[in-house]
Amino acid sequence: MTASQGEQLPIRTSEEVVVVRQAVRKWAVAAGFSIIDQTKVVTAASELARNTVVHAGGGTVLIEQITSGERRGLRLTFEDSGPGIPDIELALKDGYTTGNGLGLGLSGSKRLMNEFVITSTVGHGTKVVATKWK
């Protein structure tokens, strides 16, 4: 799997969550995604970007166009240096929340993407790598 092009953006405020959505939309269009897949990727990006702001006080996202053989895809890497997630399995359960949301951000965005990997160290931060293939 190789990354051909990419862009990194800061996520510190809810306005920047909107900027991330717009950037991910642009990359999804460039990757040739269908309207439905564009909508899924942008929605997942919105959830993950908001998590970064709400739970970690901000972070970054790296948006990359990737290829694997003939397949093209979009990989989103969200990184923060927030408090970390003590129990990832629990955090991925529908309806589990530590904020005041619905607890659909992580579990829902996992359903919208094809690959989804969370690594987190308590006290150091969280990294979410989410990939959608065309």
């Binding site: 309207i35 439905i36 564009q38 909508t39 899924k40 929605t43 959830e47 529908d94 619905l102 659909l104 579990s107 829902g108 965005s109 359903r111 919208l112």
Partner: peptide, 14 residues
């Protein structure tokens, strides 16, 4: 609501 939005929203769990 756009069809793609409806599909995504249900898959998201709402």
């Amino acid at each position: 609501m756009r069809p793609a939005v409806a599909i995504t929203l249900v898959e998201l769990g709402m």
